[in-house]
């Protein structure tokens, strides 16, 4: 039974071309002086040189990175603690933790940012600190991804058996969780953190609504640049996309390694 094998290839190729055109065009655009006809003219790297000598741009890169670290680390810790307590001591509460973790999937950027803003903006306490609001919002936005990553990791390593085995060998539940289970789900934690990095890197809504222009990240920098200089902006664009791609590539690579390791199980 021979089928027409070309059709699926063509479909995949077409979709890929459609998806890659805007990227390819922007990259070429950033490398040439002029592109008003069919072909670009005047190859140059000026944009990139200018960018990497611009203190504000470098600062925005630094901010983007810094804004990832705190919320992701905090979210990992609070989710691990919550899952430790619920899975081992109070399995009945697990359902509620799950619901709380999944709600941010449906309330996306705009609603979350405006609701946090309107609640705390007039507050006389430390809660009105804009940066704190932003960090809190980031924690909530990445909550579903971190939660699912950790939860799936726990399932994949058969956590209950691991903990019981460690207990039978004289370890406490706390020791078993943090010294036996956590090291084994490290790759799952790293993968979900990278996904979270991708989300925070790509964020514009939350930072604009919550922090305004007081702490511009790479997205805001791009937005401001594209208002007055589109070739310069295209270079910023390329750098942003490059970072995002590297992150995605890392995720894919780690995921592949992880599944391969699990499938490697030697046959008798």
């Amino acid at each position: 039974m021979k089928e027409k094998r070309a059709a699926p290839l063509a479909v995949m190729l077409l979709v890929m071309i459609y998806l890659l055109i805007p990227l390819a065009v922007s990259i070429v655009y950033s490398l040439f002086r002029k592109w008003t006809g069919v072909l670009p003219e005047g190859f140059r790297l000026d944009n990139y040189i200018a960018l990497f000598t611009d203190g504000e741009f470098l600062a925005s890169v630094g901010r983007s990175i810094a804004m990832c670290i705190v919320p992701i680390a905090a979210t990992i810790v609070i989710v691990l603690l919550a899952l430790f307590v619920t899975t081992i001591y109070f399995p009945k509460l697990e359902k509620y933790v799950q619901i709380i973790c999944m709600i941010p999937y449906t309330i996306q950027g705009v609603i979350l940012s405006v609701s946090i803003l309107s609640l705390y903006v007039g507050s006389p306490t430390f809660l009105s600190n804009r940066l704190l609001m932003l960090m809190g919002a980031y924690c909530v936005v990445i909550l579903p991804y971190i939660y699912q990553g950790i939860r799936n990791g726990m399932r994949a390593v058969h956590m209950p058996t691991l903990i019981e085995a460690a207990e039978m060998l004289g370890a406490s539940k706390l020791y078993a969780f943090f010294r036996v289970v956590v090291p084994n789900i490290l790759s799952a934690i790293i993968i979900s953190s990278l996904l979270a990095v991708g989300i925070i890197f790509g964020d514009y809504v939350l930072i604009r609504n919550l922090a305004g222009t007081s702490a511009p990240n790479m997205q805001i920098y791009l937005y401001q640049t594209m208002k007055h200089d589109s070739t310069m902006a295209s270079a910023v664009f390329v750098i942003i996309m490059l970072t995002t791609f590297i992150i995605t590539l890392l995720v894919l690579l780690l995921q592949n390694k992880d599944t391969k390791r699990r499938q490697q199980q030697v046959k008798e």
Partner: peptide
Amino acid sequence: MVFQQYSLFPN
């Protein structure tokens, strides 16, 4: 105790 399976610490 020896369990049915999956009880070795993979790391």
